[in-house]
Design a protein around this nucleic acid. Structure first.
Length: 354
DNA sequence: AACTCGGGGTA
DNA sequence: TACCCAGAGTT
């Protein structure tokens, strides 16, 4: 164990008690609410997740309420938060806890780790915060704080780095107050030891911080570069009948946005104009059975919807038809479906100009 | 071990 | 533009 450990932990917790934000999940030890907050905050900023947490707690105060909700409702409430597998796993886990565990969450790391959507970080967070177990969390904040303070240049996104930082955090944790220690180191990373231009001159740790002393703060933590994003080309076919009915489809299978809804999609390898689009077999399949009167491009400039690993170059085509299909819905009801932000943005713009 | 999964904030 | 965010699951 590093000699500094007791001192580091004590100082860190003192800072936390003076500087922590008041957040709703800090007023409870209820494992359901801790679990809910931790799932929502995975790869998500506190300020982005906060309104979703409040919505979920209000709609589903107990794990049974979440378990009894339709999956579509859960996805709709999750809309806009991203990484939708979290919502699907959240719902599945609520059902298991509610129906197979009598509504009681596992009270230790090993048991929590078996739940869908709960990995090393989340299991440690719940075990420490709700059950006072000495399980150290390692999130992006922890990587940053520890890599700088101890001068560790092992990349954080390879297995060796993850193991090294987990071991170190586990050695540093205050075993008398593990939940407070975990939240303290994360809060310190989020609020003080920030990625860019941290205020090291006023940092409580600067005398003992390796990176500050060596003037290497900007170089840590080390992360292997991600590969460049892919470009994709989406053509959404916005069917519109005379009485404003449209067609939505639910995304199935693998890939982005599983189980969310969208307009019929024709994906191409490049940006398409109308005549090229009409020549595709996919267009043939789409238009079968539709009485198409006219097709027009809604957005002259393609929308570039940016995900972390792909850019979606998107065109919305207004497809006017004379006879609506059985499966159609009023376009005004699209807002009741869980849709990607890309679709939600189109719909609101569509109604502004309508 | 590498890849995939969102959307938004920040410099 | 590039990087990051209270990471996990799949290939």
């Amino acid at each position: 164990m590093p000699k500094i450990a007791p001192h580091f932990s004590k100082k860190l917790i003192a800072w936390y008690l003076q500087n922590k934000r008041e957040l709703p999940w800090r007023n409870t030890l209820d494992p359901y609410r801790i679990w809910l907050s931790e799932i929502m905050l995975q790869q998500t900023r506190v300020l982005q997740g906060l309104p979703y947490y409040l919505k979920f707690v209000e709609a589903y105060p107990k794990v049974e309420d979440l378990a009894n909700a339709p999956e579509d409702d859960v996805l709709k409430l999750w809309q806009g938060l991203g990484y939708y597998s979290r919502a699907r796993n959240l719902h599945a886990t609520a059902k298991i806890v509610s129906e197979e565990m009598s509504g009681v969450f596992p009270d230790n790391y090993k048991g929590l780790l078996k739940l869908k959507g709960v990995g090393d970080y989340t299991a440690s967070a719940i075990a420490s915060i709700s059950f006072n177990q000495p399980e150290a969390v390692v999130d992006g904040n922890v990587y940053r704080v520890l890599s700088r303070f101890f001068g560790i240049s092992t990349p954080i996104n390879i297995t060796a780095g993850q193991k090294e930082f987990k071991t170190l955090a586990q050695q540093l944790i205050d075993r008398a107050q593990p939940g407070t220690f975990n939240q303290a180191i994360m809060e310190f990373g989020a609020r003080f030891c920030v990625p860019q231009n941290p205020d090291c001159g006023n940092c409580i740790f600067n005398e003992n911080c390796w990176a500050f002393q060596q003037k290497r703060v900007a170089e840590l933590p080390v992360k292997i570069k991600a590969k460049p994003v892919k470009k994709r080309f989406f053509n959404y076919m916005v069917v519109l009948s005379e009485n404003e009915q449209t067609i939505l489809q639910q995304r199935t299978g693998k890939g982005i946005w599983q189980k969310l809804y969208e307009f019929p999609l024709i994906e191409t390898s490049e940006e398409m104009n109308l005549s090229a689009l009409k020549n595709l077999q996919q267009f043939e399949d789409f238009s079968k059975g539709l009485n198409i009167e006219d097709i027009s491009l809604f957005n002259e400039k393609s929308v570039i919807h940016k995900l972390s690993h792909q850019h979606l170059n998107t065109r919305f085509w207004i497809v006017e038809i004379s006879e609506e299909k059985e499966s159609s819905i009023p376009i005004s009801e699209v807002k009741n479906y869980a849709v990607p932000v890309l679709i939600a943005d189109f719909v609101s713009e569509f109604f502004e100009n309508y």
